[in-house]
Amino acid sequence: MTVRPPGGQGESASEIVAATGLVYRYPGSAQPAVVDLSLSVPEGEVFGLLGPNGAGKTTTIAMLTTLLRPAGGSLRVCGVDLLRKPHQVRRLIGLVPQDVALYPTLTVRENLRYFGRLFGMGGKDLNRRVEECLDLVGLRDHGALRIETCSGGMKRRANLAAGIVHRPRLLFLDEPTVGIDPQSRNTILENLARLRQQGMTLIYTTHHMEEAQQLCSRLAIIDGGRVIAAGLPEELIAAGEGCRNLEDLFLQLTGRQLRD
């Protein structure tokens, strides 16, 4: 199944992710984790990738971020053939993992500087950008705090800042608001909206349907390694029989049985 931007003109100049027929099977696993998955994400969107546990979201994100190499299909990210030039793609993307992927004994600022340097940044440009990122996530006054002493919400915001320090065109966020208080969650969602305003494309996974409905301009629901629905949130809800919101649609499409 293919998800295309409105208009359905196929791969266009504004298409930041163009995946066709992606397949991935983990070694030793009987079933492929992802089967014939196709996605098209227009630039500048906040694209929600939703699905129950084990649906294939993480595997899809791992392929899109060069962590796993698909066994089949084609994949272009930011106009670059990811299978042939993964290194080039890595310069253009950012990842905000589900875990707080920062060094606990380093300060927020030291972490951002380190990841910035790994992108080849340095000097005044890096310092300026680090301060911008701290401003964006509301941590300017806490940049000298070690990560291990930060609150859960501050850690999540620092995690987000580390993902954008190199000004990526495309940012992947894997459940960035998990396990934090409503205030921090709200701040993060505001930060993401601001990033979108700045022209950054966001691909976003979450289990909070309300959050996805509020933030995402476009979304795809994945189950069993396949895209089972995709489009604009309001259109998808309207198309669902008796669905009042995204959560109703999600449960209707993926069922109410527990996924382990």
């Binding site: 080039q88 990842l95 993992p97 875990d99 992927a101 790994l118």
Partner: peptide
């Protein structure tokens, strides 16, 4: 375990250099 390796592996730098 803390996920920093995951982040490092998505960066445009060879893990060999790291």
């Amino acid at each position: 375990q803390e996920g920093t390796l995951l982040r490092l592996r998505t960066l445009p730098v060879s893990y060999g250099v790291i």
